[in-house]
Amino acid sequence: MSPALHRRLPLLATAAVLVGLYASGGLLYDGFLSGRVALNLLADNAALGLTAVGLTLVIFSGGIDLSVGAVVGFTSIFTATLVERHGVHPALAAAAALAVGGALGAGMGALIHWFRQPPFLITLAGMFLMRGGAYWISTESVGLTHPLYNRLAAYELPLGGRLGLPVTSLVLLAALALGGIIAHYTRFGRNLLALGGSESSALLMGVPLAGTRIAVYALSSLAATVAGLVLALYTGSGNPTFGLGLELDAIAVVVIGGTLLRGGRGHLLGTLLGLLVFGVIQTALTFDGRLSAQWGRIIVGALLLAFILVQRLLHERLGRRRDPIHTV
């Protein structure tokens, strides 16, 4: 097996699981393979996908961001309150939300880098901060009635037939493309993977550690902010409870996508595949109706377990072949 193929094995495994799940869904349920169902996979999971894109970049760098779910909730209620209660234009409200999100991410990155704190704890504080802030703004859901939201929600990019891509899916696809370019075709992306692979090596190679780290946490928070905007558009409301536990689903999506949680190895394409696996499982559960929703979490947990064990095996083999120094 060539090394390149071997390195992409987790990606291929995820693709195989996706095809298997999708095909068995098609065999079991009528109408599962329709174009509408396939397109809904993107529309229904747009917020999850957006947070997962940002989280993938953070995980590439060897970090973690637990605050993304809370940022989604905060953004939705923050913009909804600004627009509906204070008469701010939605575009301006979105810009303000992005500023808050970006500042939060950059701040967390700065604390993680300069104070050498575990990302786990700092982003946990960010999560508490944003969730508390969201409830501070309003403990109740705020419905969106601004005409711009209605126009955006009604728009669909026609794809032929009666199918179309709503704005939420378009934003997700754009973010996936952008994330893929950033991660795999820019110097910043290579710096991320280098940092995740080995911080000391990255430092010796001349990777700007502080800038890279601060930027990646800012990017992750920005992606989560966009996810909050998209979720508000999708549901037509802002709610401080939006995105509760979303960070776990996003981590699961990234891991199922074959990205190493240790950092330094992965592909953004895997995150798209992981998102589709997640979406197909949820869709199959709604199609079935006999299996209760609880099974969704259990199946995702089982998949997660299977994937980390497979990754572990692959990593061990790769490690032995590639850098004999690190196998102590």
Partner: peptide, 20 residues
Amino acid sequence: AVAPVPKALLILAVCLLQSD
């Protein structure tokens, strides 16, 4: 519902106090 905010500030304070 707002109680997480002081908790977050406390985590940050503790983390910063413990950092070298």
